[in-house]
Design a protein around this nucleic acid. Structure first.
Lengths: 253, 253
DNA sequence: GTCTATACATAGATAGAC
DNA sequence: GTCTATCTATGTATAGAC
């Protein structure tokens, strides 16, 4: 992950990825080198992810996060200052893993493999961190007030860079003609919809909630969709070894 | 009611045989049969759609809606009772137009035409009512507290019904094998992403905001994606006869 | 470092004049 | 039917005891 140039922002913005230097406090009776701080911050961030995802920024109260983290409310203010500070720390954490998945698009790779790996990565994230996806989606829907700079710089640059790779694949006849930018929008949409709109998907599928099998079905469907869109040969489905390869339309309702 | 001796009227129902001295119509100078009510409710709902979309349910204040509608805050409570009442009225309004688009999937139609019409309908909605889409997306992301019943009944039934149509198309060899339910999820995702996540799309495309041309590009991309996924012949693009490529990556077929 | 008690602001809702 | 003034609840944030 290349660390971009330090975009000097005024208002109390702090780089989240280096909380290394500590040892600043004067009296630390039994200081364990900021270990409790590390643990508590992580505990708070995990609680915050769930609460912010469920209620949105304004719907979230510090009280609710405190209860989810089983810590007193004032503790959150001690560690993160303000509610917005906590929210930004959480967003930074989520965004960190967002751009890395692009690494699959290397010019010398087989397009089919690159797309398959990318989709599987995104769906893995959807399965493992659905709350994180919701926090991010909520932030974008409401205008991306806190991440617009990131979108216009780091994300855009990264997408443009990989759009060239895909355009080259098209030019060299390795895949069908597709608009690379809109292809990315589609990839994000079809994968993240299973995290962000999970209750809608579950409701339509008549399930109480989405299970592992549902997300495997979804992954296979998306792989087909992407490979066919790009005119690439379809690979084997994701499902386990015991169940035979299924290519037909199977849905359990 | 300025008339003296006002009997305590609890509910809206009142005995008919009771003589009521209501000849006094001072409070109704020129009653237009609820016409002003109709107008004001519509005015409030339009304002509410914009504010709820931007701030979410909890982030929205009745004050903000009142200012957007240029009406006193108490007026909203007079017409809709509570904030939640107003929100539900708004959601119902949005959902009304949501299910109708399914009508394009008729068994005797050509699949390619049905999908193309459906996609164009959804994208038209995305262009004309992006705020409505955001309100709905926000509601789903946060657990669909107010619409879960609708999702599990009306929407599910409608999707199941149309999934059969698509499954029949597959069986009769009219289109490639695709899971109908997941295909719908994908259709919703790729179309609504241009309304819900418009700021992200605009940021990546280096545009201040999404324009008509961007959405035309998106529509053409989605049409290609859907038709290829379903193994259907690609129809002509949406745009006019002579449109130049936008970013140089576009290819005409 | 931790947490109780509280200050201060703003929200939703309504009473009552017009 | 309309709107001003106000009540009450709740939220963020912090001061200060431990």
């Amino acid at each position: 992950m290349p660390r971009g140039g330090a975009t000097a922002q005024k208002s109390g913005e702090e780089p989240q990825d280096q909380i290394r230097p500590l040892a600043d406090v004067s009296a630390l009776p039994r200081s364990n080198g900021g270990r409790t701080r590390q643990l508590n911050e992580d505990r708070i961030l995990r609680a915050a992810e769930a609460v912010f995802a469920e209620a949105g920024f304004n719907g979230t109260t510090m009280q609710a996060i405190a209860e989810a983290a089983r810590l007193p409310k004032a503790n959150l203010h001690y560690y993160f200052g303000t509610k917005e500070g906590l929210y930004r720390a959480l967003l930074n954490r989520v965004l960190d893993g967002w751009v890395d998945a692009f690494d699959h698009f290397q010019p010398d790779r087989e397009p089919a493999d690159a797309f398959a790996d990318y989709v599987r990565d995104k769906m893995r994230f959807t399965r493992q961190r659905p709350m994180a996806s919701k926090v991010f989606a909520n932030e974008i829907i409401h205008g991306a007030q806190h991440v617009s700079h990131y979108l216009k710089t780091k994300l855009r640059d990264r997408v443009d860079e990989k759009a060239v790779v895909i355009a080259d694949w098209v030019k060299s006849g390795k895949m069908a003609s597709v608009d690379p930018h809109h292809l990315f929008f589609s990839l994000w949409a079809v994968t993240q919809t299973y995290a962000d709109f999970d209750v809608q998907v579950a409701a339509v599928l008549a399930k109480p909630k989405l299970g592992r099998e549902d997300l495997d079905d979804a992954t296979n469907h998306i792989l087909r969709l992407v490979l066919r869109t790009c005119g690439l040969p379809e690979t084997r489905p994701e499902t386990g070894p015991e169940t035979g390869p299924e290519t037909g339309i199977e849905h359990h309702t």
